[in-house]
Nucleic acid binder design. Sequence first.
DNA 1: ATGGTGGAAAGTCCA
Length: 264
Amino acid sequence: MRIVTWNINSLRLRLPLLAEVIRHLAPDVICLQETKVPDPLFPEKALAELGYPYFVRKGMKGYNGVAILSRYPLVASEDTPDWCEKGDCRHVAATIATDSGPVEIHDFYVPAGGDIPDPEANPKYAHKLAFVDEVTAWFANHHKTRSVIVGDLNIAPLEHDVWSHKQLLDVVSHTPPETTRLNAWLETGFVDAMRHFVPPGEKLYTWWSYRNRDWSASNRGRRLDHVWITPDLKPSLTGMTVVREARDWASPSDHVPVVVDLAV
DNA sequence: ATGGTGGAAAGTCCA
């Protein structure tokens, strides 16, 4: 099973780029974030024509929005909470049958958290911390097997998940309150599938800001997008690719797709 | 220290 996760930053605007992703990578499952499309306007027909007639999506006007697209039938998970009671379309989950049994996939878009790393001064940062706390408590109480968590988690947890650990310790996405929380979430029962392939001492990024003249030359990236799996899936983990070249496509997203292969 | 760019949508808000 090939899974792609991508913060597409507008599904409707970047449908042609999604078609390229599909043509080059032929994923079985595509998890999208920041679809920015209300459910009634979801481009269901175009996605079916691209080979993905099965989906679960949660979208709203203007912001946020997540979707899981699949070549194969899926069953939407209905037991996921409304995090922080905001109804803001940041999580969908579904189960997909494979030859070796069902796999559950969670697709998350964690709040970015604004600019000021102080929960008293910045309600967006407070929301981000509370969101991760809630999700962590939920996963701690829902023991999972054969599960995958993917998405834009908006936190770069390791020193080499950012271009400068020291310079970013005060920058939302890499502050200790965030990285500590992300690690606690991971430790509810998951393994970092990307770092299984790329050692923690090596730089690894999935996002480069739009606000940069030459993203590639400055290379001030961060690893905000993640793939986690339950340990029972670890023997099935056969590959992982960060599609860095996608950042140079015409009208790119600021995030690039991440591919993971599971022999299930 | 500031501002840099991009998407949605028609104000600004969000990233």
